[in-house]
């Protein structure tokens, strides 16, 4: 994956914004739950044995005859977990535009995170082992990893996945809670969607769900004008005929909208940020557009 200078310039203007604070791994630019020696005052607490006497507020002791220690907010980095749905509905060669957009969004988010010294972990469900990338120098290996995952997954021989199980397995590898960006089409039963999201929410992560749809997902049959077509399920390989007329297209659109709204409702109720994007046009442009919609990057 090659990013153009223009794209890199645009990405440089973005920064990762969290809605809550996490314990960081290293010093960084995000407010941490850890209290310590930062620049911004946080609170006073009673002196305890073992505290460094340098942090005792002697002025306050003079006025109140109490030994109180001043505590400051720490600024640490935030772990960014990117989870990409590697199921057949995302990686089928005929639906590749969804995978391309998802990998571009992942790369862009990683770039922004690494530029701010936030560690980035990319987990492809059903894909290769998830490495962790620590610094901006790791962006090259990160894109190589995405390319390797693309080569591995976007093949006709790929197998279907048990997504909830894959999500639980990925979630167990999380060591530091942070931001979790889940990229998927979420075109599976609502119960499975809840399981996938719940697996990462259970790890005390700030979850952002990004629904990546293709043109054929958004409009049944895409631009086809045939009266009848044969459709194949990318997950199971099942084939059936379809009368492709205005009525069937409208009914499908209603069903898709209903499914998406249910997911959105669930996300709203569980403080999960939900965004839906359509893979239409150049993936780089669509990726930048998706980043701004998410509200995660400012």
């Amino acid at each position: 994956m090659q990013l153009s200078p223009e794209t890199l310039r645009l990405l440089s203007a973005f920064a990762l914004r969290t809605r809550r604070s996490f314990y960081g791994i290293r010093q960084g630019s995000h407010r941490s739950q850890r209290r310590g020696h930062g620049m911004e005052f946080a609170e006073f607490r009673n002196y305890e044995l073992g505290d460094n006497p340098r942090y005792i507020d002697w002025n306050l002791f003079a006025r109140s005859d109490k030994l109180l220690v001043k505590r400051y907010l720490e600024e640490e980095n935030v772990a960014l977990y990117i989870v990409i749905d590697g199921s057949r509905s995302m990686t089928h060669p005929s639906l590749r535009e969804k995978w391309d957009l998802a990998s571009h969004i992942s790369a862009f988010a990683s770039f922004i995170g690494l530029a701010n010294k936030d560690p980035v972990t990319i987990s492809v469900l059903g894909g290769p082992h998830s490495p962790r990338f620590w610094s901006g120098k790791a962006f090259g290996p990160l894109t190589s990893f995405l390319s390797e995952a693309t080569t591995m997954l976007v093949t006709p021989e790929a197998q279907s996945l048990n997504l909830p199980e894959e999500a639980r397995r990925a979630a167990t590898r999380v060591t530091f809670p942070g931001i979790c960006l889940i990229l998927s089409d979420f075109l599976y039963p609502l119960e499975q969607v809840i399981s996938v999201l719940g697996a990462f929410r259970a790890r005390n992560m700030e979850v952002h769900a990004v629904q990546v749809l293709g043109k054929t997902d958004q409009s049944l049959g895409g631009d086809l004008r045939s009266s009848g077509i044969t459709i194949a399920d990318s997950e199971t390989g099942e084939v059936r005929g379809l009368s492709l007329d205005t009525e069937s297209r409208a009914t499908y659109a209603e069903l898709l909208n209903e499914h998406t709204e249910k997911i959105r409702e669930h996300c709203r109720a569980h403080r999960v940020q939900f965004t839906s994007v359509v893979a239409d046009g150049a993936p780089a442009d669509a990726g930048i557009s998706a980043l701004t919609q998410m509200g995660l990057f400012v």
């Binding site: 005929s94 086809l224 045939s226 077509i229 059936r240 009914t251 499914h259």
Partner: peptide, 28 residues
């Protein structure tokens, strides 16, 4: 129309379409 086989993500929603549409009994 049959020769134009279209791969879609899933039949999750298609299964919920009325049977008349998926059976292709109508010819328009």
């Amino acid at each position: 129309g049959t020769a134009n086989e279209v791969v879609i993500s899933t039949f999750l929603l298609v299964r919920r379409l009325p049977e008349l549409m998926t059976a292709r009994k109508r010819f328009s």
